[in-house]
Nucleic acid binder design. Structure first.
Length: 501
DNA sequence: TCAGCTAACACATTTGAACGGT
DNA sequence: AACCGTTCAAATGTGTTAGCTG
């Protein structure tokens, strides 16, 4: 376990940490989390061996709790605990990310979203599409999407509902998806909707295509990250700032075959590629009846499978499955404790989508970020953090892993400079208007009550700013909560604010 | 026996090259 | 020669299905 580099670093780390944790305390209601003890541990060099795991676990539990409580947007501090804590200071920001197709996601979420994962890779539907605001129009940013386990459970679909069936598979290093148009200027990102439609999910742990690897029958939470490109460079992540946005309605279960027929129907109704199955209720029902027990399909009166206004699906389809929607198990259920923290961090392997025919030059050292804090700790304690030695090549020809706390040496070989990923002219190629989504009425999902934990180097003001509940009651759930944990180098000087206008 | 996985399939959209007209 | 719009085939994205596996 590496230590905080300097007393200044420690001090400033505390300054940055305190508000973040302080803010989480209310969300961690009922959680046995000793804030003071953890901060004290952080401040000393006698931290327990599993300190970072605990901290990260608490952080991710906090995120999970916040999500479960209905906050639609948060900044996690997972990054901060994924490795040796960078010294820096907390800073508020104005970046906001909203889920563009929230209505569609809500429809799926209400039932219990499932995503097919295949050996060759499968796209997500709905696609995660976001509107971004508050960026510096002239500054370049890297947009990243990753998927973290929502808990450490394995699930099964039984009696029309998802239930925990055991412990999750051992965590594998996850990959992140860097938007192919990265880096792009704030102006470009904000000009139109940013779509992550190119991302593919696979269950093939030997995948060489750079797809995001997931386990079937496990629950995942997508997260979007905004990273200033200037920080996505040598030493960047150590001093840089991350902005992480979690949309709870995008949580889904990875499956190799659809379990809930209502999800199947919803996909068919909304995905243009599945138009061929619209109106083919009989086949769908046949499939459903084949897969499901009689109990699952008994009384079918009164439940509409189709969203309001849908013109597809026969009437008989709408009469299927009266059973209550198979919601995901309550994360607050005390039985299997949520444990997102075991995933470690945020970033796993960086992946870039490419076509099978595209050649790859392994010398083009794609930037990558190591995943788990466990791994972080291990590598940090066993590997000199030199520029070259930290580039840990994986078996994948173009996916390298690199401890995040030693992200270096990427200036000349950064993915950002890869010719295949050079910025493209607008209109933003990352946005591919969904031919079927024009019918979706956009309702801004981000929170008008966007709360920031503002930076202050003074404990009192920190406590003030980070009063436990920000004045938000449960009635405010649904409003966005932002807990930013942005660390910057250069202590003790404050970084200049973005020249926003 | 059965839950979960895989690959082939039909049907859909997307993509980009080829072509012709201006 | 450059630009634009149309056409069309290949590539790719879907859910379904039968069969396989542990």
């Amino acid at each position: 376990m590496t230590s905080v580099e300097s007393p200044e670093g420690q001090l400033n780390t505390r300054a940055g940490l305190a508000p973040a944790l302080g803010c989480t305390s209310s969300i961690l209601q009922g959680q046995d989390f000793d804030f003071d003890r953890h901060v004290d541990s952080l401040m000393s060099y006698n931290r327990p061996p599993n300190f970072y795991e605990e901290m990260h676990g608490a952080a991710t539990t906090m995120a999970s709790q916040a999500v479960q409580s209905g906050y639609s947007q948060i900044h996690t501090m997972a990054f901060g605990f994924s490795s040796s804590l960078p010294h820096g200071q907390l800073r508020s920001d104005t970046i906001e990310v909203e889920l563009e197709n929230k209505d569609l996601w809500d429809k799926f979420h209400e039932i219990g979203t499932e995503m097919i994962i295949t050996k060759t890779g499968r796209r997500m539907f709905p696609v995660i599409r976001v509107n971004i605001s508050g960026l510096n129009p002239k500054e370049e940013y890297v947009l990243v999407l990753d998927l973290i386990p929502a808990d450490d459970n394995r699930y099964k679909f039984h009696n029309s509902e998802w239930s925990v069936t055991g412990k999750a598979e051992p965590l594998m290093p996850t990959r992140i998806f860097v938007h192919p148009d990265s880096p792009g200027t704030g102006s470009q990102w904000m000009r139109q909707v940013v779509s992550f439609q190119k991302m593919k999910l696979t269950n093939n742990h030997m995948d060489q295509m750079g797809h995001v690897i997931l386990n079937s029958m496990h629950k995942y939470q997508p997260r979007a990250h905004v990273i200033p490109a200037k920080d996505y460079s040598p030493y960047g992540l150590r001093k840089g700032s991350f902005y992480t946005f979690v949309f709870p309605e995008t949580q889904f279960m990875g499956v190799t075959a659809y379990q809930n027929p209502r999800i199947t129907q919803l996909k068919i109704e909304n995905n243009p590629f599945a138009k061929g199955f619209r109106g083919s209720c009989n086949s769908t029902m046949h499939h459903i009846m084949k897969r499901k027990s009689p109990d699952d399909c008994r009384d079918t009166d009164g439940l509409s499978l189709s969203p309001a206004g849908s013109t597809s699906s026969g009437e008989s389809c709408k009469r299927a499955f009266q059973d209550s929607p198979p919601k995901f198990p309550d994360i607050n259920d005390p039985s299997p404790p949520p444990m997102m923290g075991h995933t470690g961090s945020a970033f796993g392997h960086v992946m870039f989508p490419r076509r099978p025919s595209e050649s790859f030059d392994s010398s083009c050292a794609f930037a990558s970020l190591q995943n788990s804090c466990r791994q972080q700790s291990l590598s940090a304690s066993t590997t000199p953090l030199t520029t070259s030695s930290t580039l840990n090549l994986t078996p994948h020809p173009y996916v390298h892993s690199l401890p995040m706390n030693s992200l270096t040496s990427l200036s000349n070989t950064s993915a950002l400079s890869h010719p295949c990923h050079a910025p493209r002219p607008l209109p933003h190629p990352g946005y591919m208007g969904h031919p079927n989504e024009h019918t979706i009425h956009h309702t801004p999902s981000h929170l008008s009550a966007h709360v920031h934990s503002t930076l202050s180097g003074y404990p009192d003001s920190l406590r003030q700013d980070c009063r436990p509940d920000y004045g938000l009651g449960r009635g405010d759930f649904g409003k966005p909560l932002t807990i930013s944990t942005t660390f910057h180098a250069g202590f003790p000087g404050n970084p200049p604010p973005y020249p926003f206008h």
